[in-house]
Computed example of a mutant assay.
Amino acid sequence: MFTKIIYTVLFLVGISFNAQSKDGINFQTKNLEEAKKLAQQENKLIFIDLYTTWCGPCKLMKKNTFPDAELGAFFNKNFISLYIDAEKEGVDLAKKFKIVNYPSFLFLDKNGELVQYDYGYYNAKQFLTVGYSVLEKRNLGNKTPTLAEVKGKLVGETIPDFTAQNQFGNTFSLSQEKKKTVLVFIRGQWCPYCNKYVESLQNIAPELESKNTQLVIISPEKPEFIAKTIDKTKTSYSVLYDENYKIAELFDVLYIPERKTLDLYEKHLGDDFKKSRSDETGRLPVSATYILDENQKIIWRHFNPDYKVRASLEDILKQL
């Protein structure tokens, strides 16, 4: 009888321990690519605890911080969490983000881009504050940045597939183009600097063809305004209508001008500015130029917030 009681107590204690172990952060056994897919499906961020086996604070975080119920509830609701050994499966991550301190915490968006980096020991209450700050930053990041804030995608990053209509009525799909691609963002046919630049790009058409490279112009303007771009520049390149600014957002080149700048454009340009795009917010792309390889990875970029400064034709050709 006594033996049965002992086994019963031990059984109940085991149940209690297992229940408690599930209260904290739910670290999933997935790689980063799998986590990104899940984060996209569930509209969550990605949290990576990058640790080493010899790191004392790493062990304390695992023992004291991550099992906290309140912390777990928050992180499980908002993050896909991964627990990765920096000296084994996390070697590439450590190199990519130049990690030298442990534990290191990578907070990524659903596309795997860095939202915030942190490191060191935190108790549960402190780490909950870190989580809230990351979430707030993500929410702020959903707003269109100003010209001073916009940074653009960087060399080495891969652009997801997109489709758009060109001036010929054809659908352009990035994933179907198995060649290098030069993408040039313009502000619209009302911009004399854009028109002059698009016209000059025609001079390198033979060289691009010889290098099996296509050049595509991205415009935020509707087809009837793109027709004005064609008329003014006589370009033979594909000009894509970036409806709802989807392509500009993929490249992180979309910004909102200052109010005084918008007032100036609307006063002097009228409907050519206000009514030419998907909406009347006044948003514009930075006049950036990107070169992508056959796998949609950025291999070169020219990014300057000053719309008067464009990529030189010589620099474009040097990268091909």
Results as ranks from 00 to 15, higher is better:
Ile256Met: 09
Asn244Phe: 00
Thr233Asn: 04
Leu240Cys: 09
Tyr265Cys: 03
Lys267Asn: 00
Leu284Cys: 01
His302Val: 05
Val198Ile: 14
Ile299Cys: 01
Gly282Lys: 10
Lys234Ser: 11
Tyr290Phe: 03
Gln296Trp: 06
Ser200Ala: 14
Gly282His: 09
Lys260Gln: 07
Trp300Glu: 04
Arg301His: 04
Ser276Gln: 10
Lys228Ser: 05
Asp279Trp: 15
Lys260Gly: 00
Ser236His: 10
Ile298Pro: 03
Pro206Trp: 14
Glu258His: 09
Leu183Met: 12
Leu284His: 01
Gly270Ala: 13
Asp293Cys: 08
Ile291Tyr: 01
Thr289Met: 04
Val216Arg: 06
Gly270Thr: 07
Ile230Trp: 06
Leu262Met: 04
Leu183Lys: 12
Trp190Pro: 01
Leu284Ser: 02
Leu240Trp: 04
Leu292Tyr: 10
Tyr237Leu: 05
Tyr197Ala: 02
Asp272His: 01
Gln296Gly: 12
Ser210Gly: 05
Ile256Arg: 13
Leu250Gly: 03
Leu292His: 03
Ala227Arg: 14
Ile226Ser: 14
Lys232Val: 01
Ser278Phe: 06
His302Phe: 12
Val182Met: 06
Lys228His: 13
Asn244His: 07
Gln296Phe: 11
Glu249Pro: 00
Ile230Ser: 05
Thr261Arg: 04
Lys234Asn: 10
Asp272Lys: 10
Gly188Tyr: 08
Glu199Val: 03
Val216Lys: 11
Tyr265Trp: 10
Lys222Asn: 09
Tyr193His: 08
Tyr241Phe: 13
